[in-house]
Amino acid sequence: MGHDHDHPRRELPPGMLEQLEIAYSGMVSFGQRPFLTEPEQLDEWRPDVAIVGAPFDIATTNRPGARFGPRAIRSTAYEPGTYNLDLGLEIFDWLEVVDFGDAYCPHGQTEVSHANIRERVHTIASRGIVPVILGGDHSITWPAATAVADVHGYGNVGIVHFDAHADTADEIEGNLASHGTPMRRLIESGAVPGTHFVQVGLRGYWPPQDTFEWMLEQGMTWHTMQEIWERGFKEVMRTAVSEALAKAEKLYISVDIDVLDPAHAPGTGTPEPGGIASVDLLRMVRQLCLEHDVVGVDVVEVAPPYDHAELTVNAAHRVVFEALSGMAARRRDAAGQQPGPPSPRGPRA
């Protein structure tokens, strides 16, 4: 993941720095990181990670609104600071992160929007930079993960997919590019083979039996909420993390925010009761990024119009920060540096 830090850190000019200092004012940038718009700027900055928005939601089957996700995650999330207590590190001491703006997604144009998402993600990944994509509905994973596979090779990338739904339909109401079909498109194209999938959090009413049979034929692996309830999340997490390593050397993480119980994330298009808690999702994403060579991450289906008190926006924002924390800790550990002091546990003698 990433590349050597043999380049000097570039400083923002005072005017831009001032605009980024306060979370609730000034220009909108994820985590108040430098905001870049052109590929040439990526070459100049040479970051490890680039955030990019995919404000597209016309592939939804229930409630639209995820097109507003990227802006909301950038602008209305509580600014959490950049130190990770559990890992004992200052994230941006080890990871250079920039915001690369949004892919151009014109209203009502699926093919154009998906092509633009694929192109912008490819612009990032082809430079050895890890793309972190803010959706948008889940259909954006088709072009985004394809762009990553274009760079690292078809069949060389595995996907850990957090979701209430498997998103493996052949078509939904005649739509091959629905938010319920991206994983099938990735498998059928050869970009990510079915054997390279690990899905976590499935529950509810979908998919039906025939779709599950197709998934078995493809060699897919999944962990339902029933299994999590029976075995416990920590045990399932250990299994899923080890499975991901066995699937492929490179890993892409796709997080549909509806994997969370609606109590934690009400602002999504297809809420499904009975999901996991944010505390569990955050730690699993962090662990995956710490233990694996993660080459892409997306967080999708955040629909601010249905959110309450920014619960969903803040959960999605923290998913990204935990992913960045895991990547930073992986880099720190490779450099042989020890973490900061852990917090005291229990009463002191």
Rank of each mutant, 00 (worst) to 15 (best):
H7M: 05
R10N: 10
I257F: 01
G269D: 06
G326S: 02
I159P: 01
G53I: 04
H308E: 13
T239E: 13
S126H: 08
G81D: 14
Q199D: 03
L20R: 08
L89M: 11
A59E: 02
R330P: 08
D293Q: 15
H308S: 10
R238S: 15
R283D: 07
L311I: 13
V192C: 05
A335I: 02
G190A: 11
P273N: 10
R283E: 10
E230T: 07
M220T: 02
V297M: 01
G269A: 08
P13V: 08
A263N: 12
Y306A: 11
D93S: 12
H165G: 05
I172R: 01
G174K: 14
L87T: 15
A323I: 00
M327R: 01
V28Y: 01
G153N: 13
Q226F: 02
H152Y: 15
I124E: 00
D298A: 02
P193C: 08
D258T: 13
S75T: 06
I22D: 07
T141A: 14
G2C: 05
I159A: 04
P14D: 10
T82E: 10
M183C: 09
F30I: 09
M237N: 09
E301L: 06
V236G: 02
G326K: 01
D163R: 14
Y154E: 13
V157N: 05
L42R: 05
H196A: 10
H138W: 11
A263L: 14
G69I: 01
H179A: 10
H223Q: 14
G69Q: 02
E40S: 08
A349D: 14
T312S: 07
F35V: 12
K234I: 07
E235S: 12
V130D: 00
E90I: 12
D280A: 11
I124Q: 00
P342E: 12
L12M: 08
G336F: 10
T82M: 06
S113E: 12
R184Y: 02
L260F: 12
C289L: 03
Y104N: 09
T224F: 05
V52C: 04
V112M: 14
L245C: 11
F30K: 00
H7W: 03
M16Q: 04
M225G: 09
T60E: 07
G326P: 01
Y104P: 01
D99M: 06
E40Q: 09
M27R: 11
H107F: 08
M327H: 00
I228E: 04
D150T: 13
D256I: 09
L12A: 09
Y24W: 03
V295F: 02
M220V: 01
I73H: 00
A240H: 03
F197Y: 11
V52D: 04
G135Q: 11
Q218V: 03
G194F: 07
G88A: 09
E173Y: 11
W206A: 13
A334R: 10
Q109S: 09
V300F: 01
E38T: 11
A144Q: 07
Q199I: 05
M220S: 01
D93P: 12
Q218S: 06
I124L: 04
G81M: 15
E11K: 15
R120C: 09
P182K: 06
R118E: 15
A177W: 05
R238N: 15
P304K: 04
E21L: 04
P143L: 15
A145G: 05
P344D: 06
R286F: 02
A164T: 12
D307P: 06
H196S: 08
R46A: 14
P70C: 03
E11C: 14
S139M: 04
V241E: 06
A329K: 07
D57W: 05
N314T: 12
